[in-house]
Design a protein around this nucleic acid. Sequence first.
DNA 1: CAGTGTGAAGTTGTTCACAGCA
DNA 2: TGCTGTGAACAACTTCACACTG
Lengths: 214, 214
Amino acid sequence: MKNRNNHGSSIQVPIPTLRRLPGYLSFFKALKINGVVYVSSSQIASAFNMDSTLVTKDLSHTGIKGRTKVGYNVDQLIDTVINFLDFNSRENAFLFGVGNLGRALINYEGLRHYGLEIVAGFDIDPGIVNTSIKGIKIHPLEEFRDLSVKVPARIGIITTPDSNAQEVADLAVAWGIKAIWNFTPQSIKVPANVIVENTSVYSDLAVILHRLNN
Amino acid sequence: MKNRNNHGSSIQVPIPTLRRLPGYLSFFKALKINGVVYVSSSQIASAFNMDSTLVTKDLSHTGIKGRTKVGYNVDQLIDTVINFLDFNSRENAFLFGVGNLGRALINYEGLRHYGLEIVAGFDIDPGIVNTSIKGIKIHPLEEFRDLSVKVPARIGIITTPDSNAQEVADLAVAWGIKAIWNFTPQSIKVPANVIVENTSVYSDLAVILHRLNN
DNA sequence: CAGTGTGAAGTTGTTCACAGCA
DNA sequence: TGCTGTGAACAACTTCACACTG
C-alpha cells in the first residue's frame, strides 16, 4: 500500500522502513503479552536503540494514528502492521532444494504465521524425493511443471547448492513465478518483471566481522 | 581495515558495500571455475543489475587496483575480498538454541569456510543436550559459564525461541561476549560496547510481499 | 576507445526543530 | 508538559560526468 502526501501524489515506502516493521511487530506482541496497552514512539525507539522520530515516520507509513501524550494503542499497532505488511494474507511458495536450510525453512513455523505457505518442495536427490516434511511433499524437480499448475504459487524459494541457483531460477521464471527468494550467495539473472530478493548470511557475517575487527 | 582518503583522514566502509562484497566474491569464484582471468566492473555490474561505478567504488574500498582496458584479475579479487572481509581468519562462536534454525547453521558448511567456527551449542531441552551435531557438542545452558572459559569465543549466535533471546543475550554479555548475532525478530538490549547484528527472514519477507502487492 | 578512478551532483534516508494537541 | 506529526536540515549512499591510462 502506498501513502499519499499532501499534494496527492504517491510516495513509496522506504525499504529500510519495511525491513524494520517486522521487528517492531515482534516487540508489540511481547508488550501485549505483558499487558501493555499503550506505547510511545520513544519507548519503541529505546528498545531498538534508534531515534524516536524515525519510529514515528516508520509507523506513519502504515497509516496508524497515535494519541498525543498517550502513544499508540498496542492492539491497533499489531493489527495495522500485520495488515500493512500483508502478513495476514496467504501467499503460496515453492521450495527448490531441500538441504539443511530448506528443511529448516519448512520446519520454521514463523513463515506460515506470517503468511508464507510452502506448498511443495523440489529436489533431485533420490534419498529426499517423495518423502514428506511437516506434511509438505518433496517432489522430483522434473515434476515441477505439472505440479505447479495444480497448486500454484507466486514465490519461489531457492535453497539449492549455489551452482544450481540460476538453472532453478530459469525454470521457475519460465513457468511464470513472480518473485524469487534467493538464499544462495549467487547472483541470479531474471527478466525485469520478476522480483528477486537475496538473503545471504554472508552479508551479515561480513558486517559482524568488520565491526569486530575495526 | 579502513581506507585513507587523499587528505590522510580515515573514512569508513559503507555498510551496503560490506553487504555486497560477499555476493561479488561468490561471483568471482564462479568465474574462476569457468577459467575467466580478468573481469571488468561493467561485467560484474551487469551480473548484479547495478551501476558499474558502484562496483568500482565498492572494490576500491578493498584496496584492489584494476588495469585499465583489462579489468580486475579474478584470482587477486578473490584473495583481496576474502582478506578484506576477514573470511580467512578463524573466529569462534557459541550457538544458543539448537532448534531447526540452530541445527541448520551447524550443518551449514559455508560459515566454517568463511571463518566462523561454531565451537559449542547450548540448549535447555533434555532431548538435545549432550548430543553432538557434526562433532559439535550441545551442552546444557547452565554449563555455559564454565565451558566458555575453556574454548572462548567472541561471537554468540542466538537461535532460541523469541521469548528467550534477551535472557540468553544477558548471559552471554555477562560472560564477556563481544558480538551477538541475533536470529530472532526480538530486539535485544546490550551495553553500547557489544555489537548486535540482527538477521530476520521477516524483514526480507516484508520486502518481497510489499513488492509483490504494489 | 574501453576500461579504471574520482570529485560533484543527485537521491534517498535520518535527524533536527518546532507546531499542535490534550 | 509529554507526546504526535511534519517540514527543513543534514548525512549517507548512488549515479553522473569526466579526467586519465595503456
